Amino acid sequence: MSVTIDITGLPPERISFCPSPLAELGNALHALSEPAHHARLHAWTTSTAAALKPELADRLHEADFMWRSARSDFLMPAQPRETLAEELDDLDRMDDETFVGAALEITCFIGNTGRPVPSPLVDASSRRRALDLAAARGPRQAAFVDRMLAEPAATRAWIRRLLEDCEDAFFGDTWRRVRVQLAADARHKTELLRRKGLAEALTAASPALSLEQDERGRRIVVDKLVQRRTEARGTALTLIPSVFGWPHLFALYTPGWQPVIQYPVAAHEVGGTESIETVKLRLEALAHPLRMNLCRTLVRGAHSTGELADVYGITAPEVSRHLSVLKKAGLLTTRRRGRYVLHELDHSAVARLGSDFLEGLLR
């Protein structure tokens, strides 16, 4: 499964790498609302949350549906600016129907129709859907969405003030610290694009990004657990680096919107770069009870096929078949000692699947 962006005929100069303060603020707010997603940001989320004034924390909670489990489209600007104020000015120029539809993330619940979804301000079914979804999230969110639909201009002004207050309270200092790194990353990817081509620049941005080309055209493929398709023909494509986004890789594919990809600049520093297919292979390999038992032995040290056969009372060929599955999934390392081949569990690969599983094997 993947998000596919058709870029057939799109000239290289219409593809840009550029940091965005609004996008990074959206990621920072998501990290504050879901700190468990961002273990490497634990110190920042803890200290920032502790320093928030109760009134600001209360307002952030009221509006967190825009960045907690889904990312509102307006938080990924197609034309990033130097400052948050400039990007908020761009949002002010967006018409109410577009802004409200983006803020409420209606499109992500409708399905992959490939057609623009009517705004809840003008479409009764979209309105009912928005209110139903908000009610499921709790009374405060329901009241907020009801207010947005009844008074979009006033609610938009409220959202702008909230984001400006976040900049004053914590994000201004944070942005000054990270924007240098983001700008450097964007320059590096732009140079790769110019000198070595788009495929090289995409791979450098994230192993989950790739370029496909055949007789049907050129496509960027984003390896994600969704199946969506959009196109950048005749428009442009923006790629936004993010420090606070890791481990998430976002792709804006809403019909009628310019495609935007937001990638984590430090994803290569810690695992998590395997494809979805590799993760699937690993989970399937570990689902067999005998292979689970083999892993429990192999996590403690290297063993030969014969040793494992003796331990579990099965034939060596049967052990070899199970080891082959684990090796194909990238969960084993092997080395030769004389005439013996020794197998051992790859701790780092297993740890990336989940610390609870690894700790269970070692228990």
Rank of each mutant, 00 (worst) to 15 (best):
P12F: 01
T238I: 05
L56A: 06
R14C: 10
H42A: 10
E212V: 08
Y263E: 02
E215P: 00
S206H: 13
A153E: 14
A142L: 10
T48S: 12
A251K: 07
R129G: 01
D73L: 03
K196Y: 12
L104H: 04
T4P: 04
T203C: 09
L10Q: 06
A136G: 14
R40P: 02
F171G: 03
G245M: 09
H303T: 09
L41C: 05
L193M: 12
R14D: 07
R71L: 14
D123H: 11
R160L: 02
L239R: 04
R161P: 01
A351K: 15
D356Y: 04
A232L: 12
T174W: 00
R179W: 01
E269Y: 09
A201K: 05
I276Y: 00
M1N: 14
L22R: 09
P118T: 11
W67P: 01
D6C: 09
M292P: 00
A184M: 07
L25P: 01
T48A: 09
E86S: 15
A102T: 03
V341F: 05
D64W: 00
H248G: 06
W175T: 07
P19N: 12
S320L: 05
V180P: 00
P54N: 10
L84V: 11
L60S: 03
W175V: 06
I220C: 07
S242D: 04
H37M: 08
C108V: 13
R339P: 01
T113K: 13
C108L: 11
G306S: 07
T45D: 06
L249V: 10
L10H: 04
D95P: 00
E318S: 12
A232Y: 02
Q213C: 14
E62K: 14
A208H: 13
A302S: 13
G271Q: 09
V100L: 07
C108S: 11
R216N: 08
H303E: 02
V100H: 01
V222I: 15
